[in-house]
Amino acid sequence: MNDLKKEIERPEIFNAIRNSIPDARYSARKLAEAFTENIKPLRMEESEHMFVNLSQNIQELDYFLDFITQLREGMRYFDGFNLPADPISSEGAGLSLFQEMHAALESKDWIMLSDLIEYELSPLLLKQEQWLGSLYEKILEYDA
């Protein structure tokens, strides 16, 4: 741990990561719920309201993924935590899911899109939230 402490040259990064994780966890949970809730009607009908909500969710997902990219950048300071790779980045899981979602959206295959969101994306976001939780615990442990 002492070695690790040495590696942290910028305490402001450490603080920023620590302080942002609770918000990120909350966002991941809420995003998973919102996607599941908003996608439900798509199996039954196409409504403008539903598409507006969905596009808002996708935008929020974008912000969240930006945060994860930033976090991954900051993670090089935390190699010593021995945390597994985050679920979204792991083996390109997120990338391949987003490509499938994009294809479903392009071909207006709403059942496929609903399935991907309900059975893949939302659980993936919840896994990401758990991973963030583990990371946070490690950080607190370290901080102590």
Binding site: R43, S107, K108, D109, I111, M112, S114, D115, E118, Y119
Partner: peptide, 10 residues
Amino acid sequence: NNITLHSLYD
């Protein structure tokens, strides 16, 4: 024609 008619999960 690239359209799924029923859920591929449940």
